[in-house]
């Protein structure tokens, strides 16, 4: 079991968190949805696994490159 960092590629606000810790998710499945400049942009799992940690809350501001969640792959 490896812990994989999930990073955001954009700066924006956390709009909706659509998973919770413990959820099994597939590769490319959205963990949360960000909102930036009138666009909704999903942050997807880089590989399949189990959501280990969610490091942000809805409404938070996140910056490009920051780790927003971790999955156990």
């Amino acid at each position: 079991m490896a812990i994989v960092d999930v990073k955001t590629e954009i700066t924006g606000n956390v709009w909706k968190i659509v998973t919770k810790v413990g959820d099994e998710i597939d590769e490319d499945e959205p963990i949360m949805i960000l909102e930036s400049m009138k666009m909704e942009i999903p942050v997807a799992a880089p590989e399949p696994g189990k959501v280990a940690e969610i490091l942000v809350s809805e409404g938070d501001t996140v910056t490009e490159g920051s780790v927003v969640a971790r999955i156990e792959a």
Binding site: T11, G12, M37, I41, E64
Partner: peptide
């Protein structure tokens, strides 16, 4: 636009 054309025109605020 504040965006990145190489990455599907993703927003790039700052």
């Amino acid at each position: 636009y504040a965006e990145n054309p190489a990455k599907m025109f993703m927003p790039s605020p700052g």
